[in-house]
Write a protein that binds this DNA or RNA. Structure first.
Length: 879
RNA sequence: GGGCAGUUAGCUCAGCGGUAGAGCACUGUCCUCACACGACAGGGGUCAUAGGUUCGAAUCCUAUACUGCCCACCA
């Protein structure tokens, strides 16, 4: 016998063990089988699972389990990402706490420490994914920096190098001063900040005239100016081009150049040009090479000796203050205005990016992007929801070369070797004596880009790669659409000639209940592990997934989980109820296939029809990648239809004598419940596994686990519109009677007598035929029928299904209350009637609307009219 | 500066051309023999605003207003 309430703890740990012992999630290539594969977006080895991981992985797990239940050979590959800068940063912080630094340790020792530490975080994360219930193929665990992946990375690098798609060059890159490394363009986030726009006068070199006033947001770079640019068509500055200005604070003479890219309408129309520290200005240098460049900010973020005596060694901020003060002192600071501008910041540490000229490795992207755009346009690759397709295409179309070198230690070291004046050599290991390897490592996203191939053994032509590639779907958040998804597409197409996955499901991010991003500083972070402890893993999973509507962020707070926890308990208790009503040892399992159809009563036909409809609804939702809708459909069916109505109605037979009717009810209870549990299994694997097992002696399931069983198939077509309609009629009668009881405060224990009056033969027959339902669910002791619409004295009235139901309640009710109640009912009925009347009385509607529409509207009108009349009538003769 | 979403019950969101829905919260009754993590009943919305298309619009179109996101080298 099951306990009274579901206790997730023991159930979860038991099944976790059993699944693992059975290697339930392991997959091998199977010729001829339908295949479903996913590669996990590998979490960084920096720390613990957060709520975003919980959402991302639950979604994948739902898909994986779902497809497995539907007969596919499924493989979900687990793994982790070394996470480059992010991970190194965490370690550096640790070292700092020990008054150490990576430089003090040295590269080798530092890497040893990284290895040791990430070994433990890796296992923490994988353990947490296990706990989340993820059906990952644990024998296939991969790491972006393990040996096999290193081989993939080298192969890709070599292949791109051989194709001349990798080059080294001095370019303007995004430099993070804090992390001490270059970043790619997409690793820079733009933050709108309130800043200032300073207007500075640059005097004419010959002392004649006013000189020029430039506007800038970065006065400290003035020290590196090598020109001032104006638009050659700017009337104000005609004739100035070619003349010289005296650069304030330095005395250097710099030329005025004409450049089409200068916007005459912004600021003063004159731009100071600092080619070494501004991407635009660097472009200007390309067009006016004679101006040259001057580096005044170093990779450490401090001013270089070239910045001049007064500033050398100062930070950028200090230099700015000093320059401004000096300018003011010389009377050259003309104006200061407020100005909003977008500041580039490092996506890993948030500090302001410094555009810096530096020698880096790049991947040429144009040729790689083209096939990816084609794949999208030809429909070989689809993004769900679709609104991401356009931004994705745009990004690929305007792609820039990818800076892949990072000046950190944690990562795949660039496999390029140098020796004196010889040509550099690309090799996995040292080509021989005297060669030294490039000190930089590759962008962590370089190895991630290869992930869907590398986990299956690429570049080797393995059987895994043949069977599982391309993978079926990729599930991830929109924040890494370009960083990761696009690059996987490009690499997959380049090296395998096929997209690495045909569909990408892009989900939102988890926010708090008021829509704010979760962050430690706001204190609104929900820890998934804590939630699992408190409410159960299934509850956490379900509440996340059912809120994850395609294309929307997921609002989440602790109280979102209680509803799902309650649902798990509902499943538990409905199974408990069913088990309590089954014989200890069934002669044979219950089956829907062998149901004697002549024994099915209305409730049976109805629930089977609803069951089938719910299964279809859920399947349709899953097909359109709407996991939330699928979960919702099953939830609604189980709770509102199965528990609230069917179970209650089945009790009538269960409490009666043994016989075929009772057996039919049992069979339906067992099979519909079992089928629903299986369908819910992808969402709530633990509780459903437990209940599936408990039902096994009765359900006839032979499989050791739900995943070894099959999704419910209805061998017979249970759809039945008539049953749904008739049941609806009976349900409305019951609801009206219950409302009457509640509103008139009829004691719950008291059974009422009901006189059904009116001339609606069909309804009458339905009510007469299902008196048992009415009696049980509305607590009625007897139903009488009459054509006489005269309301008996001392009785209350309910109107439903075209009939009046008189309930004699002598001495029990206050007729003022009943009058008020009926008046309210009448009001409602009238409002409803008028609404439909608007439609039906409109000749245009009758003439132009489709015939079926008119027919239903007229039927509705008739019903509403009758209902209103009934209530009014009753009201008139109320005593 | 470009693009994309959103604006529906107190809160969080479904619905996306035919009488306004769910969960939570709220009110009332009930510890009715599966479940109080429950049952039943109930209150609560001019579906952001203004036009338009249509027999009919929360749903389609066009503007407007907020809100959020993505992208972008205007100093």
């Amino acid at each position: 016998m099951l306990d009274k309430a579901y206790d997730p703890g023991p159930v979860e740990s038991r099944w976790l063990q059993e699944w693992e012992a059975a290697r339930l999630f392991h997959s091998e290539p199977k010729a001829g089988a339908r295949m479903f594969s996913i590669v996990i977006p590998p979490p960084n080895v920096t720390g613990a699972l957060h709520i975003g991981h919980a959402l991302n992985n639950t979604l994948q797990d739902v898909l994986v389990r779902w497809h497995r239940l539907h007969g596919a050979e499924t493989c979900w590959v687990p793994g982790t990402d070394h996470g480059g800068i992010a991970t190194q940063n965490v370690m550096e912080k640790q070292l700092k706490g020990e008054s150490l630094s990576r430089h003090a340790l040295g590269r080798e020792k530092f890497l040893e420490r990284m290895q040791a530490w990430t070994r433990s975080t890796k296992s923490t994360i994988l353990g947490q994914l296990k706990r989340l219930g993820c059906a990952l193929d644990w024998q296939r665990e991969a790491f972006t920096m393990d040996e096999a992946r290193a081989k993939s990375v080298f192969s890709a690098f070599k292949a791109l190098w051989d194709a001349r798609l990798i080059y080294r060059g001095e370019r303007m890159v995004n430099w993070c001063v804090r992390c001490g490394t270059a970043l790619s363009d997409i690793e820079v986030e733009h933050e709108e900040r309130k800043g200032k726009l300073w207007h500075i006068r640059y005097p004419a070199a010959d002392g004649k005239g006013e000189g020029l006033v430039v506007a800038t947001t970065r006065p400290e770079t003035l020290l590196g100016d090598t020109a001032v640019a104006v638009n050659p068509r700017d009337n104000r500055y005609l004739g100035l081009v070619g003349r010289k200005l005296k650069l304030p604070l330095t005395g250097r003479e710099i030329p005025i150049v004409g450049d089409e890219h200068v916007d005459a309408t912004f600021g003063t129309g004159a731009v100071k040009v600092t080619p070494a520290h501004d991407p635009n200005d660097f472009e200007i240098l390309q067009r006016h090479t004679e101006i040259g460049l001057r580096k005044v900010i170093g990779p450490d973020g401090k001013m270089t000796p070239d910045a001049g005596e007064g500033c050398a060694g100062l930070s950028r901020e200090q230099a700015r203050d000093k320059v401004l003060a000096d300018l003011a002192a010389e009377g050259l600071l003309v104006k200061t205005e407020d100005h909003k501008n977008a500041v580039g910041v490092c996506y890993r540490c948030g500090s302001a990016i410094e555009p810096l000229l530096s020698l880096q490795w790049f991947v040429k992207m144009g040729d790689l992007a083209k096939p990816a755009i084609e794949a999208l346009d030809k429909g070989q690759f689809k993004i769900h929801p679709q609104n991401w397709a356009n931004p994705y295409r745009e990004w690929l179309s305007n792609i820039k070369d990818w800076c892949v070198s990072r000046q950190i230690w944690w990562g795949h070291r660039i496999p390029v070797w140098y020796k004196e004046s010889q040509e550099p050599v690309v090799a996995a290991s040292s080509p021989g004596e005297g060669w030294t390897q490039d000190p930089d490592v590759l962008d962590t996203w370089f190895s991630s880009a290869l992930w869907p191939m590398s986990v299956f053994g690429w570049p080797d032509k393995t059987e895994d790669l043949r069977f599982y590639y391309p993978t079926s779907v990729l599930v991830t958040g929109y924040e890494i659409l370009y960083l990761w998804v696009a690059r996987m597409q490009m690499m997959g197409l380049r090296f395998q000639g096929q997209p690495p996955f045909s569909d990408a499901i892009i989900h939102g991010i988890v926010r708090d209940k008021s829509g704010k991003k979760m962050s430690k500083s706001l204190g609104n972070v929900v820890d998934p592990l804590l939630m699992m402890d408190k409410y159960g893993t299934d509850a956490l999973r379900f509440s996340l997934v059912v809120q994850a509507h395609p294309g929307r962020d997921v609002p989440f707070a602790e109280d979102s989980i209680t509803g799902s926890r309650n649902f798990a308990n509902k499943l538990w208790n409905s199974t408990r109820f069913v088990l309590m009503n089954l014989p200890e040892r069934p002669a044979r399992p219950y089956s829907l296939e062998t149901l004697s159809h002549c024994c099915l009563e209305l409730a049976d036909k109805w629930i089977l029809a609803e069951y089938q409809a719910a299964l279809e609804q859920a399947r349709k939702a899953m097909e359109s990648c709407d996991v939330a809708a699928a979960g919702d459909a099953l939830y609604g069916f189980l709770w509102d239809k199965f528990c609230d109505w069917y179970v209650e109605l089945a009790k009538i037979r269960l409490q009666g004598i043994e016989g075929e009717e009772k057996e039919s009810a049992r069979a339906i209870l067992v099979q519909v419940l079992n089928g629903t549990l299986k369908m819910l299994h992808p969402f709530m694997p633990y509780v459903t596994e437990e209940l599936f097992a408990a039902l096994k002696p009765y359900s006839g399931e032979m499989a050791a686990f739900v995943l070894k069983a099959q999704a419910p198939r209805t061998a017979f077509d249970w759809s039945n519109e008539e049953a749904r309609r008739d049941m609806g009629t009976v349900m409305s009668v019951i609801s009206e009677l219950r409302a009457l009881r509640a509103q008139l405060n009829v004691p719950p224990g008291l059974k009422i007598k009901v006189i059904a009056a009116g001339d609606a033969p069909e309804s009458e027959a339905l009510v007469a035929g299902h008196q048992g339902y009415v009696k049980a669910l509305a607590r009625v002791e007897a139903v009488e029928f009459t054509k006489n619409l005269r309301r008996p004295a001392q009785s209350a009235t309910a109107v439903a299904a075209g009939l009046s139901f008189f309930v004699p309640l002598a001495g029990l009710i206050d007729f003022d209350t009943e009058r008020q109640r009926l008046q309210k009912e009448a009001q409602k009925a009238e409002a409803e009637l008028q609404k439909i009347a608007q439609k039906v009385k409109n000749p245009n509607f009758i003439a132009r609307a489709p015939r079926e529409e008119v027919a239903t509207a007229e039927a509705q009108y008739g019903a509403a009219e009758a209902r209103f009349a009934r209530i009014k009538d009753t009201l008139q003769y109320l005593d």
